[in-house]
Design a protein around this nucleic acid. Sequence first.
DNA 1: AAGGTGACCGGCC
DNA 2: TGGCCGGCCACCT
Length: 110
Amino acid sequence: MTNSSDNFFSRVYGIALQIPYGRVTSYGAIAKALGTARSARMVGWAMNAAHYNEEVPAHRVVNKKGFLTGKHHFDGTNLMQQLLENEGIKVVNNQIVDFEKHFWEPGIQF
DNA sequence: AAGGTGACCGGCC
DNA sequence: TGGCCGGCCACCT
């Protein structure tokens, strides 16, 4: 797309790519890692562009309540849920079970 | 250039 | 998920 803006998206990609298998994180956590915790909304925007990249596990990114808010942004409808369940994450009614247990904080080394 | 939007979060009823 | 409102930053028209 543009030039300078790509830098911002690249940061979000970098964080999303750091999400370990079977782990999930929230937009706020990513925003916080980027230094813009107050603007978690723009993280969602970046995710919107990120979903264009198959390399970015956007399905591992959910909202603070553990709900698959961006699920309707995926191919079909429950694709995001299927991906999470495939990683061993239980998803019921578009909500991640034991979200806190599967929660992963961006920026940490693993 | 200005206004509106967006996969949210936190605080306050 | 308690529900509603404002704020925040970047992108799009």
